[in-house]
Structures are given as structure tokens and as C-alpha cells.
Design a protein around this nucleic acid. Structure first.
Lengths: 250, 250
DNA sequence: TCAAAAGTGTTTCCCTTACACCCATGA
DNA sequence: TCATGGGTGTAAGGGAAACACTTTTGA
């Protein structure tokens, strides 16, 4: 579908990209009982933002989102879903972009395409923290995980986008099968419960949780786990589902 | 928020509008136990489509959607919600738009802004059929209600958009309070049940339905209804909720 | 042998389902 | 008085909540 011709975002005209449309990705990971979000920092600005990108003239929007997440994490098989379009006029803030572009070289002309108003399509992605390799682009100082509770201030309305992504994740956790995307291939029931508790922000009852998860019929018990703890070793489970990757589950 | 300056879609350059972004609205109504969708027909083309529009340079995207629905129905207080962005490259079909524009006057130049690739933000609206006044624009032959089961062929991927809107409506009917927006201010429990049955495409048990709806605590019994039928007259109910209008319910 | 975590069994409770019964009304 | 649709009562069934008990392991 997508011809590869590699236009460059830094062109003043934005040749090769759809104008006025951006993609912002809230990439969630889970580690040490903490829900994390991948953020980038623009060089020499102290400005933090969600990983984002633009849509090539001949590229599907969903493919562009996949490409953005792949560029930042190196992962291919990711759960990714649109959740909202952020399109208020009030989010238009060219001053911030002028700083970002200027930090990368010369000050941009006033009619630089990135200084125009943009609408952003919000995606959220659930990735395996242990396999993701945060990868900055040339214009970033960093690309790293941040705990949801201790994120730096973000540009534009990106904090709002994270909030809305988290709300969507919470709402979907109940009636879609998505939590597993945040865990490694094999995990214990305790890991899974910690994940659910962290996302939902509340404690769950262990017996009820175990039964509910097993009743879904999508978990396969693999083997015994050895632990360093002074207690019974838990089973390992893996998620059995062929339809991994870009999800069209409704 | 929105300065009024009235740009015109027919300008070749699309001056005053965001480029590459359109809005398509699936406006649902309910009448005679049928779920209906509002469709427009372009003049002298035989082409049917969803009501749609574009976003003014200084207009919120959600405001633009409200404006589109208001233009076609005359209604102000409408339930309206984004549900998906349709952004595949394959939906790009300039030939159809060339026909539409040509039918309105002279053939457009090849660089007419409407012949470029567009991404469409899908909204669905739930309106009171009895209060909506379908209103065509100058370039339409008609603007009318169609039964979901007997719609004409639609341009582009508009049939897909309707399908996805219906699926979203079905999924939300269970866990959001939205069905009432399709009924007049006062209605019987039978009306409401018929509506649910039509949307979900299956029969529901009357006693269970009545109890579930009343348990929501959002219905107020108003008065006795007189009927022409040879049976007990049903109560009338009305929906008690202050937060009518553009919904931010999550 | 003990503490801690994991796995499973059991009872209770509540909501939904299914069905029954009564009510009101016009033909 | 009878058929039809509306409203409510009630018993049965299924799943979640709450709690108890057993199992396994390293200290």
C-alpha cells in the first residue's frame, strides 16, 4: 500500500506529507509495578512531548501510526488503536514549535508548514517493556520511559492526550482482551493482577481475579517458575491468540 | 471560539479551510420502528453520500461537526460523538468528486483542493426524528431519511462508515446512556424497548427491560397516555438529565 | 517449623432470567 | 366479556464477592 519515498519533516513546505494532520502516540509499558509512558525530549529546548509523526501522501493513517511506534520502540507486533482526535483551535501554539525548529538549526520562516495549525489523531499502544528499545530520532535529546505519576510537563495538550488515553485503556480493560500486550510472553497470575491493579488504580481480590482470567480461555499454563521468594512457586502463563499485531477487535 | 467569516467550499483553493481533513456524520433517527440515516444526494449525479463538511481555519473540530449536523437537521441540542478516523489511502477517489463538482458548474482544475486526498473524521449523531427538519444545501438534490436496510449505494467508503457507526452505537448502548436521544421528549417504555430492539437487532424481555431502565434512575414518569389501542394505557416517561447537548460522557 | 505467596474450594449474595399474574381499555 | 398491551410480583439460575483452607518453597 505504502510506496517508500522518504519525504523529510524538516522541509519547509512539508512536501510529501498531508498538511494539518499529525499523529500522537501514547505508548504504554509496564515495569516494576508501574505503568510507564514513552516520552521524547527535543534537543536543546527542555521540551518534552509524546512521540508523534506525520502521514505521507500515499500512506494509510494507521500505517503511519504503526511506523511512528516502530521508530521509537523497534517493535513490530504492537497493539495500537485510535482513541480520539484532538482538534480544538486552542491547541494551536506555533511559538513552541518555533523554539523546537530553531533549536535544530536556523529559525524557520513564518510560513513553515509545521507552524500552521495541526489536528492530532491520538493513538495508544501497549508494548512489552522488556522488548521495547526506546530509540530517539536525530532531533531528540532523549527517548525514555516515565512513570505516569512523575512525568515532566509536556508541550501543547499532550498531558490531556495521556489522560484520555489512560481513561480509554481503563474503559477497554474490562471488555476487550488487551492487558496481555503489556507483559512479556510468559508471566505469572500475580504479574497480570498487578498490571490490572495498576491500570485501574485499585486492589482486586486474588481468587476472583484468577478465576475470571482463566475463564476467558485465552491463557495457557506453561511451566513452573522458580523464584527467590520463600513461598510456593507460581505457574507461568502465556497468552494464546493468533490475532496479535494491529488489532481490529471491536 | 469560532470567528464567523464564512469561507466557501467551492473555492478552488479551499481558502479558509483546513486541507485534507473532512468530517462525515452518520445522523441516526428512529421512526416507525425503523432506524434511519440521513443521506444527501448531489445534484444531477445520482450520487448519494453522508452529510459532511470541512473545518474552518479557526474552528474547533467538534464545533465543525455540530455545525454540519445543525445545517442538515436544524437541531441544536444533539448528541454527537467521534467514533473513528477513516484514513486509508485506498479511499482516495478523485474521479467521483470531479463528477460532483462538474455537475455544479464548470469542470474543476486538476489542482482543485477537493480533488486532493482527504482523511475523514467520522461522527455519529442521535437525533429526535420528530424535531429534525432535513435541509438540503444548494448543491444537493435532496436530504432525506433512509432505512438502514434500504439505503442507496454511497460514494467512497461511506457505507463502511455507516456500518462502523452502527457497531459503535450498539456497543455503547449497553454502557452509556444514549438511546434516549433518538426519541421525542416523552415516550412510553414500549417505544424505548422497540428502539433498543431495533438497534440491537434482537428481541428483549419486557419485564427485565422495564426494570433495568427504571433502575438507571434517569427516567421520570410523567402522565398517563391515552391510546387508540384496546389495552391499558401506558405511562409516559421523560429523560431527566441536565447534561444534554454535546456530550463529553466517557 | 514458620512465614509468605500461590492455588483451589465453598458459601453467600445479588442481579438477571423466565414466567406468572393482575390491570386497564376499546372493540 | 374478551383480546391486547402494560405493569409488577416471584421463583430459579448463574456469576461475583468474601472467606477459608491447603500447598509449596526458602529462610
Amino acid at each position: 500500500m505504502t510506496k517508500i519515498n522518504s519525504p523529510r519533516e524538516t522541509d519547509e513546505k512539508g512536501e510529501g506529507f498531508l498538511k494539518s494532520i499529525a499523529i500522537d502516540a501514547v505508548i504504554f509499558g509496564f515495569h516494576n509495578n508501574q505503568l510507564k509512558v514513552l516520552l521524547i525530549e527535543y534537543k536543546r529546548t527542555g521540551l518534552f512531548a509524546l512521540p508523534g509523526g506525520f502521514i505521507k501522501d500515499d500512506e494509510d493513517v494507521n500505517s503511519a501510526a504503526t511506523r511512528v511506534v516502530n521508530d521509537r520502540t523497534g517493535l513490530d507486533d504492537i497493539f495500537l488503536e485510535q482513541f480520539y482526535v484532538f482538534g480544538d483551535y486552542s491547541r494551536y501554539n506555533p511559538a513552541q514549535f518555533k523554539i523546537i525548529i530553531s533549536a535544530g538549526g536556523a529559525a524557520p520562516p513564518d510560513d513553515h508548514w509545521l507552524l500552521k495549525r495541526f489536528i492530532s489523531i491520538g493513538y495508544y499502544a501497549l508494548v512489552d517493556f522488556t522488548r521495547a528499545k526506546p530509540t530517539p530520532a536525530a532531533i531528540f535529546d532523549s527517548c525514555d520511559w516515565y512513570d505516569l505519576g512523575s512525568m515532566p510537563t509536556l508541550i501543547q495538550d499532550h498531558s490531556l492526550i495521556v489522560d484520555k488515553a489512560l481513561n480509554t485503556l481503563r474503559a477497554n480493560l474490562d471488555h476487550k482482551v488487551i492487558g496481555f500486550n503489556l507483559l512479556p510472553g510468559e508471566f505469572t497470575m500475580g504479574d497480570l493482577q498487578k498490571l490490572y491493579e495498576t491500570i485501574l488504580g485499585k486492589k482486586l481480590l486474588r481468587p476472583a481475579f484468577q478465576r475470571k482470567m482463566l475463564a476467558l480461555g485465552i491463557l495457557e499454563r506453561v511451566a513452573k517458575k522458580w523464584t527467590g521468594g520463600a513461598h510456593k512457586a507460581p505457574y507461568l502463563y502465556k497468552f494464546i491468540n493468533e490475532t496479535i499485531g494491529f488489532s481490529s477487535k471491536q
